[in-house]
Simulated scan of single mutants.
Amino acid sequence: MGFETCGPDEVLVVSGCCHEHSRFISNGRVFVWPSIQQVQRLPANLMTLSVENLKAHSKNGIQVSVLGVAEVKICKNVQDILRVAAENCLGKTEEQIGNILREIVQGHQRAVIGAMNIEDIYCDRKKFSLAVFEQASNDVINMGFQLVSFKVENVLDEEGYLMARKAERARNEATQH
């Protein structure tokens, strides 16, 4: 007989005898019968994921690299979603979980890049970030996590398209005056 304690950055998953379904404990402790019940731990701290799409094609066919940051955490307070997280992630390290979630957000970021013009991606980063957040949130929830935030850190145009457009606008403004 023994008690298992759960810290604020984890969720205990108790399974085995005496319960029809696994029990989820966050921020507390639980009595566990050794040999007939099993305790596993899920990381519940906020994960910061670097999301990179290198040389993706925008809607107007220009190659662009976008570097973003996603903040993701497990849904500790919703039992059904927590059950999904347990099914998908028990036995995996926090790094493995982060890699899975990063790939989900990267895929949605690439889709948004393909749906927007490079000027919109570069000039309206809030709109771009919101589009990635909205598209990725559902798939992240389906993994048992929630996307807390997503922001664009940098937009790079290695072909020089944005610099050429900027120079063109400057020339047009100079000829108008």
Results as ranks from 00 to 15, higher is better:
I25V: 14
E10R: 01
E52I: 01
V39E: 03
L46I: 13
C18K: 02
V30H: 02
E20R: 12
N60M: 12
M47R: 09
S35Q: 14
L46S: 09
E20L: 06
V32N: 01
V11G: 00
H57K: 15
V14F: 04
K55H: 13
R23I: 10
I25C: 01
G16L: 04
L12Y: 11
G7N: 08
V11E: 08
S26K: 06
N60A: 11
L46P: 02
N45C: 11
L46W: 05
S26F: 14
A56H: 01
R41P: 07
N27F: 13
E20I: 07
I62H: 00
D9W: 05
T5A: 12
A44T: 12
T5S: 05
E10H: 01
C18N: 06
N53F: 00
C18M: 05
D9T: 06
F31Y: 13
L54D: 14
S22T: 05
P43Q: 10
G16S: 06
Q63W: 13
V64A: 06
S35A: 10
N60H: 09
D9R: 07
S35F: 15
S22R: 12
E4H: 08
N45I: 03
L54M: 12
V39D: 03
H21G: 04
Q38F: 10
V39H: 03
F24H: 12
A44C: 12
C17M: 15
G7E: 10
S15Q: 08
G2I: 03
I36R: 09
V30S: 00
G16Y: 08
C17G: 03
T48F: 08
N60I: 06
V51E: 00
